[in-house]
Design a protein around this nucleic acid. Structure first.
Lengths: 175, 175
DNA sequence: GGTGAAACAGTCGCTGA
DNA sequence: TCAGCGACTGTTTCACC
């Protein structure tokens, strides 16, 4: 006989709900993934092994996919950030278009609903490099046009946040 | 007398150029910020203390700003990703608009050149929550309209890459 | 999930080139 | 002056309560 120690159903696996401890741990790791389990445990009132156990579980379940260094694009020689909207005849997502992801300048690629088929987020070293990317996009069969939005200032750029505003409509604007 | 051992000028400090070792280290840390200096050193053929010294220097100079955990939006209960373009009368960037960054659903905010003043990247739990965000945007004085691009699929989403394609125009499409 | 101990890696000082 | 080596400190991680 199987003892049900996991809450509701013993057989449930995968999309298990996250409790407040998990949210706090994930939020702290999203801010700084390099802090030790000791300080992490202090922040959430848990022992280091307990934190470690939860982090391992969160990584296994796929909620936390890893940790990445945050690099400064300008310092790396890529001061130009742009969002490129691609309009295409028919179904925009083609194998040919996805090959553009090979370029290290491309950071994101989404297919979207709206008056665009695909949106690229591109960080280049110069307007010339952005032009070269656009020429590559236009060389893809089916592409009918592009619209580029060059970032003048970036006021916020952060990873996925663990918190949610529980009830949006009534949520007050924070002071 | 000061010996010039740092390449060109001994007195230069701050925006020092990155050599191939730095690029490799940064690239490896962008992929996985949690790997030890030992394996990092093996990857770039450097001793662990040497790698550590370089990482410290890169953090001081601001090229590497930190490390963040990569969380899965869907697993966190935020399956809906959207880019919201804000059109505003006059200069779009207002203090009132920047307060929207307080919402954890907002991940990016850029002022851009093009037929939009500001672009938000928003990750919400439901269409209802996105609607609530849009209502907050429209409540900001000066905002004349919004255009939302809801992501249907995300084909690529990665941090700033350390590599650059040295010469874009002639760069061949990778197979 | 908490407590202890062992294994491990990060960190500093030293030596050699 | 810089890279490689060894000892100390702190963290990770395991077995047990």
């Amino acid at each position: 006989m199987i003892k049900e120690t996991n809450g509701i159903r013993g057989g449930r696996r995968g999309p298990e709900q996250l409790d407040l401890f998990d949210r706090k741990i994930l939020g702290a790791l999203a801010e700084d993934a390099l802090q030790s389990y000791a300080v992490l445990g202090k922040a959430v009132n848990l022992s280091p092994p307990a934190v470690h156990e939860r982090v391992k579980r969160l990584r296994r379940s796929g909620v936390m996919k890893g940790a990445h260094a945050a690099l400064d694009g300008t310092a790396l020689g890529k001061p130009l950030l742009a969002f490129v909207h691609v309009e295409a005849a028919g179904w925009g997502k083609s194998e040919r278009l996805m090959q553009l992801c090979r370029f290290p300048e491309v950071e994101e690629m989404h297919s979207v609903a709206g008056d665009a088929s695909v949106i690229f987020k591109v960080r280049t070293g110069s307007p010339r490099a952005l032009e070269a990317f656009l020429s590559q996009v236009h060389a893809v069969p089916g592409v009918t046009g592009t619209k580029s939005y060059v970032a003048l200032s970036t006021y916020l750029e952060r990873p996925v946040q663990a918190e949610m505003t529980s009830d949006w409509p009534e949520y007050p604007l924070p002071a």
